[in-house]
């Protein structure tokens, strides 16, 4: 029982659970759903889960945010002592990049969804796939 108590009170455990849940729900949304909007939302969840894992990689126990706050203290040795206790800034920068990329891709996906809905009046992927095949056959035979 004690072991389980320890595990459930760990922050680490819950962060893992949340990120895995986001990733799995996202993959479910992309792979198994028939609705185009749900696919886009699934993509958003997936990216969020991966980003949590990435930013988690930079965390250090009992470390502080990577910002030098004592600005008046210009002694280089003091600054170095402060920065040695800071968390890793690199994953934070990478996650910032990844978030912006994900935002761009999702906006693009949404605009495609708008276009498809205007064209076909439905967002069911099976119906759309059939419509695409039909269009292809029409265009192949119509060229003559």
């Amino acid at each position: 029982m004690m072991i389980w108590d320890d595990i459930f009170l760990e922050v680490d455990f819950w962060i893992n659970i949340v990120s895995i849940a986001l990733i799995v729900i996202g993959i479910y949304g992309i792979v198994f759903s028939q609705h185009l909007l749900r696919m886009v939302f699934g993509l958003g969840l997936l990216e969020a889960g991966v980003n949590i894992l990435l930013v988690k990689a930079g965390y250090q126990k009992e470390a502080i945010a990577p910002i030098v706050t004592q600005a008046s203290d210009t002694m280089m040795s003091n600054i170095l002592a402060a920065t040695a206790q800071m968390v890793d800034p690199v994953p934070q920068a990478m996650v910032l990049t990844a978030i912006v990329i994900a935002a761009g891709v999702q906006a693009l996906a949404l605009s495609l969804v708008i276009r498809i809905y205007k064209k076909y009046g439905t967002l069911d992927s099976h119906v759309l796939f059939l419509a695409m095949e039909r269009d292809r056959h029409l265009s192949l035979n119509q060229k003559d």
Binding site: I27, I30, V31, L36, M39, L43, L46, V105, L108, A109, L112, V113, R115, I116, K119, Y120, L128, F129, A131, M132, D135, R136, S139
Partner: peptide, 18 residues
């Protein structure tokens, strides 16, 4: 800008983003 190219593009985007 045909309907089929939008659907193909969307599927491409989804697989690629995954």
């Amino acid at each position: 800008a045909t309907g089929a190219s939008y659907i193909a593009g969307f599927r491409y985007l989804m697989i690629s983003a995954l």
